[in-house]
Design a protein around this nucleic acid. Structure first.
Lengths: 217, 217
DNA sequence: AAGAAAAGTTAGGATTGCCTAATTTAGATT
DNA sequence: AATCTAAATTAGGCAATCCTAACTTTTCTT
């Protein structure tokens, strides 16, 4: 069985691996908040359970089994987040941290009930797609707001979920999944994007704009 | 902070201590499914955090702090059980085990939402009282069905929660919290109790009858 | 291509919570 | 009071997961 630590390593590798390049020890260490030495040790252990392949000094890659395990943890995480927002009414900026703990402890039976109660939802509160039971996941077709030029318009499809302050700010300015956005201008020197969202004009810093994905229309 | 193991030890001591006598190392070991040697070690550690007082060779007692901690864990456990039954629709015989894991991981915020959503309930699905936030708990006035004589009548107030098979059986025969029961007879040789519950006459073994508490009317 | 810098690994330790085996203490028996 | 037994404790280990410090390999610079 995979421990909580195992699941967190696999999930982090999955996220860093998008595109199938090998993930470096230091990138993984940074993502998990541990030292590279700890990562080296865990990778040796995890490669024994066939969820990943580690080539010394060359990085890690998940196996098919590891990828499935990662997607199952992500499914749990996202269903739990949505459940906490929709059923328990928790604020969307706090559910990421909660789900981070619960995802390792909720049984399949509970997860299944949540899925049914929520009507087999496709996305979590931040717009991220929820993988299916067997590891299928919709590839989202969005572009970062930071990369759009003046004149572009579209719908917010997803926002970065980790930073509560950022999420509260995004709610404040109505820049949440589903919102219609039009790009008025992009300031060349610092990347600030000027947009219209729900009838109001806003200036959005480059940092914020790169945490918001838009599906252009 | 108290770890999961800490919480389980404190909860077990609380349960074994009802009446305030000291709890023996071996009783605790049996309740927790570990060896007495492990208990000795943990007690030394726990006494350092002022939740209990351990007198070597004489047993343990919770301090006021320990008692509060125990009641808070029990509150979590029972609220979670009820939530799983009422909101997620899990069968009442499976929620004990689930709550046993979740009680250590659910945040105070989530617990508070569950409490509100359930309307500040007084008892869990097995009829056990839910302690308040600050450790107050209703003392239940029930008597074991096994101790009642012919002619007694009353309402099921609580049933033992740990054995799923027993719980399924109790549902089958409608002997669940709230049910009206009349004792027809008690067989002297093996303690079998003959009762009427929801219009039907049933024979209930002594073992089962001592897992059911009745509030006589 | 040599040497320096960066990245990665190994070695050795700490902590938590469990185990078995050996020893000590408390309490009962004679 | 001496002895026996049952209960409890200590000693010494193990597995997981983290750490720091030392060492090795790779990569970059010149």
């Amino acid at each position: 069985m995979l421990t909580t630590a195992d699941q967190n390593y696999i999930k982090a590798i999955y996220r860093l691996q998008l595109g199938n390049e090998a993930v470096s020890t230091s990138a993984l260490a940074a993502a998990l908040g541990v030292t590279p030495a700890s990562v080296s040790g865990m990778l040796r252990k995890l490669s024994r359970s066939n969820v990943l392949i580690h080539q010394r000094y060359k990085g890690v890659r998940l196996t098919a089994r590891g990828r499935l395990a990662a997607l199952q943890v992500i499914r749990r995480h996202r269903l739990i987040e949505l459940f906490l927002v929709e059923i328990l009414g928790l604020p969307w900026d706090s559910v990421h941290k909660e789900a981070e703990r619960l995802e390792h402890v909720v049984s399949d039976e509970i997860l299944e009930r949540m899925d049914v109660l929520l009507g087999h939802p496709a996305v979590d509160p931040h717009g991220a797609p929820i993988p299916s039971h067997n590891g299928r996941i919709a590839s989202h077709a969005g572009v970062r707001l930071a990369e759009l030029d003046a004149g572009a318009r579209g719908t917010v499809s997803e926002v970065a979920d980790h930073d509560p302050d950022l999420l509260r700010y995004l709610s404040d300015i109505r820049l949440t999944p589903g919102a219609e956005v039009a790009v008025i201008d992009r300031l060349p020197f610092d990347g600030t994007v000027v947009i219209t969202v729900s009838g109001r004009q806003q200036h959005v810093s480059a940092g914020v704009a790169s945490a918001v994905w838009i599906e252009t229309t």
